[in-house]
Design a protein around this nucleic acid. Structure first.
Lengths: 336, 336
DNA sequence: GAGGACGGCCAAAACGTTTTGGGAGATAAT
DNA sequence: ATTATCTCCCAAAACGTTTTGGCCGTCCTC
């Protein structure tokens, strides 16, 4: 039903070859013929069949991205922003984006394999790397181009962009120390994520350097959601000697922690300090506005996508392993 | 480089046809040959080339979804949840999901057209319909299967799922009236969206029915972000006679409104009531927990995807236009 | 006027599948 | 012995492109 190149050939009386070449601006077709072909193609509403094009070209011009969803109430500002970054960039470069949703686990790898081996994508974007990330190992084995957001702890050589979470936490802890806090607790994301270890290390090292430590009961673990931030903060506040400052491993848990504080009638920023990590858009308009470490998620999405496209196209990269310096954003949630 | 069906044929000494048929379980190949072929295919690590398969089958098994992003700091829990719904469902049914990001406007329609005409997708999911939605008109014209989240005001016959926003707002307003509120303000999303008119109508009609009205200066407009909720609520609170209750057209703006209230040292739920719409996961853990109207976004994503797949596969639908009854979720942000 | 260069065009192969329409040989029915 | 019916298999066409290699004139050059 749709118009093919063959239809145009028939209509113009030219060969398929000539039509194809005319439409692609080759110079071995005369200007008049080209003009004529282009015009009829337009009239007939021709759009190339991308499947056929790709089969022939042996390239898909498609990037793969697997969204690690957790349960139905999946809602993380991190991902919408990141997705916007990679989506926009891919679009600008003429690439499509194939998105799958899959919680980490067994079937996850199967999807990666199938998309690659089925030649559905030219490359992958991997997000939220884990310490020993099977996805990275698989992609390396298969020789598929990919770029990751985050490092692993295996000493693998692969392209990534990451933010120096340890440095970020360090800045944050120093800030709190300077404000006089001595009892600082930390709600950590699950340690299977590399960024979680990284951030925890930053907290611990900075405290140690200051002659303090992170006591065992001041280190609790959440699952990155607001709900768990609330629950864990509540536990911290119930301690016989509760902390005067709570750092959360991401903004979402920090918001939860703020709610926990407020639920007991205390005031965030005055009675107790709360800080996050990520600087999601909500951090600015929360009450009180959240002190946090900025992570340019959108920009990282763009960078990763551009790197991946360059790799796919065989262009050289200036640097394949980029670690961004974090930036501390001081707002009111830790007081003055 | 990758293994093709031809390689298997060569290795097994059978024809391409037989290999293909064996792998698809046709019964005109003997059990022994089939077994042998399947085994070697596995040994050789064969994965069918989906491009070729699709070109031949004239189906893509892919659904299209265009994420309407607004600027780099795009972050809306609505979309992550919706995306999870459609992504999971598509995956279960063996469909891929092709996601583009594109702000509404000129180029938007071009993308829809290209994906359809380029035979990249079998159908589309349209989200956040507008009153006169050019996307719907285009898709209808092209005869592409699609299902929308939301209605339009043109009287077009197309499949959709929507929630009865007017009824939801009605319940919310009644709740506030019952609590004694008489000065109720509304922060509306842009009226180009059908759901915005719907919700506004619900607010106005219910107030009118109660012998009240929505005065002009109590009706303000935000852009669905938390930031604009904060700004507009601030304007409302600056009025000579400020409202005692603020309803926001979505949760995100409600959170902003809550911040605005708290910034002036007032207490949400005691000094002033704030309510939202959507019941995003954050509503539950905000402080105070937000009274809002529940919208089962994940489930709607699932429903829409299932409907679309049925349409594509030519199966009959029980109902093509579904309007869900909303549910009021009373929490503490409007007091007792 | 022979040789070469060039401009404009095209047939055919290729990409990796699935499907169509048989065909060969064995067994069963007449 | 002929015909019919299976069982197992295959060659070739098709899906819609791009690319390869070459062909046929015309125009120039010596």
């Amino acid at each position: 039903m749709p118009v093919t190149i063959k239809d145009i050939a028939k209509r113009t009386g030219k060969s398929i070859t000539t039509v194809s070449r005319a439409l692609h601006g080759y110079d071995d077709v005369s200007p008049e013929t080209r003009e004529m072909i282009v015009r009829t193609a337009e009239e007939m509403g021709y759009t190339p069949n991308l499947l056929a094009q790709r089969l022939q070209k042996q390239r898909t011009d498609t990037l793969g991205f697997i969204l690690p969803t957790f349960g139905p109430r999946f809602s993380d500002p991190f991902f919408s922003e990141f997705l916007a970054g990679i989506g926009n960039t891919a679009g600008e470069y003429g690439y499509d984006l194939l998105v799958s949703t899959q919680p980490p686990g067994e079937k996850e790898l199967e999807i990666y394999r199938k998309k690659v081996m089925g030649r559905q994508v030219d490359g992958f974007i991997v997000v939220r790397t884990r310490c020993h990330d099977p996805r990275i190992q698989l992609l390396r084995e298969m020789g598929t181009p990919f770029v990751a957001f985050g490092r692993t702890e295996d000493d693998l050589d692969y392209p990534f962009v990451d933010e120096d979470g340890a440095a970020g936490m360090s800045m944050l802890v120093e800030h709190l120390l300077k404000l006089g806090h001595r009892r600082i607790a930390y709600i950590s994301p699950p340690l299977e994520y590399t960024f979680a270890r990284d951030r925890l290390r930053g907290v611990q090292e900075t405290l140690t350097a200051a002659g303090l430590a992170l006591p065992e009961d001041y280190l609790v673990f959440g699952d990155l959601t607001q709900r768990s931030g609330l629950a864990e903060a509540a536990r911290l506040l119930n301690l016989p000697e509760p902390p005067t400052a709570i750092i959360a491993g991401n903004d979402l848990m920090a918001f939860g922690a703020m709610s926990a504080v407020q639920q007991r009638g205390m005031q965030v920023g005055r009675d107790i300090a709360v800080a996050g990590f990520d600087d999601t858009p909500m951090a600015e308009t929360a009450h009180p506005p959240l002190t946090t470490v900025h992570q340019p998620i959108y920009k990282i999405g763009r960078m990763i996508t551009e790197m991946l496209i360059k790799i796919i196209q065989g262009e050289p990269l200036e640097s394949t392993q980029i670690i961004l310096k974090p930036q501390l954003i001081v707002r009111q949630s830790c007081g003055e």
